[in-house]
Amino acid sequence: MVNEFPQVLTIAGTDSGGGAGVMADLKTMQARHVFGTAVIVAVTAQNTLGVQDFMALPTKLIDEQFASLAADLKIRACKTGMLADAEHVHAVVANLQRYDFGPVIVDPVMIAKGGAALLAADAVATVRDELIPLATVVTPNLPEAEQLTGLTISDEAGMVAAGQALQQLGAKNVIIKGGHEAQPTLAKDFVLLADGSAFWLSAPRTDTVRTHGTGDTLSACLTAELAKGQPMATAIKTAKAYVTATIAATIQVGHGHGPLNHWATPSTEVTSDDAKI
């Protein structure tokens, strides 16, 4: 019976303000009833107003964190977040190849909500060429999808093209998050699955600046659901419904881009429509 309980892993940076990164991931994992663990790649000085500073940990310590988890726990799914630079992306890739930690959800974090760069410019190619091919699911927002594919995304056709391009880079399943799209009433995401099927997920927008950690929360929820054995499409829909609710059920913390409400119950307002590709 040892290690029977679902265990998951976040590989990312901390957020001293508690709203994003490893902190948001662990809160989400706890809320979704799995046991969360972490490999810390970087430490940030951060609050709702922005990122004041950060420092990446020595790669030797990253290797040791992976080894420690592999020696004792049974990780059923894992996710990546802030990976800092090419050297640290290389280190994470090597460890994901060394250990079987189940499905790999890649959240290709590049820019913080306040605008600070969380991935060195020269590391984008490393993420694209080394990490994306390991991804069971990749979850970029529109700017991240543009960076990874070299495409300009200005409409739904562009989101579909980016999803197909990311599959061609090696990702099995793709979620293109449409939160940056200039759609006033709906937040619409494009989902392309490994079997070639596709669908759109839509949810009503909430007029709020308290959206810090949305990408972390969605990918962490997806990681949790897959670890519990949910089918891919169901897990993705649950993650969208959960992050929608965490934004809508706002809590008042901080003076800037505030955090989400990780106590929220998944929203029933998310709709799914088949996509033609």
Rank of each mutant, 00 (worst) to 15 (best):
M1R: 11
F5C: 03
P6V: 05
I11R: 06
S16L: 01
A20I: 04
V22F: 00
M23A: 15
A24Y: 11
T28V: 07
A31W: 07
R32T: 06
H33M: 03
F35A: 10
V39T: 07
V41W: 02
T44L: 06
Q46Y: 03
V51L: 07
D53Y: 09
D53G: 09
I62E: 05
A67D: 14
S68V: 00
A70V: 00
K74H: 13
C78F: 04
C78Q: 14
M82T: 05
A84T: 08
H90K: 15
A94V: 03
R98I: 03
V104E: 00
I105E: 09
I105R: 06
M110H: 11
A112E: 02
G114N: 12
A117E: 06
A123M: 12
D129C: 09
A135E: 01
T136H: 14
V138F: 07
T139Y: 08
E144W: 05
Q147R: 14
L148M: 08
T152Y: 04
E156T: 11
A157E: 14
G179N: 10
A182I: 02
V191G: 03
V191R: 01
L192V: 00
D195Q: 01
A198I: 02
F199G: 01
W200E: 00
A203K: 08
R205Q: 08
D207F: 00
T208W: 05
S219Y: 09
C221K: 00
Q230C: 10
A235W: 07
I236M: 15
K237L: 12
K237M: 12
T238D: 11
A241Q: 06
Y242P: 09
A249I: 00
Q252T: 12
G254L: 05
T265Y: 09
V270Y: 01
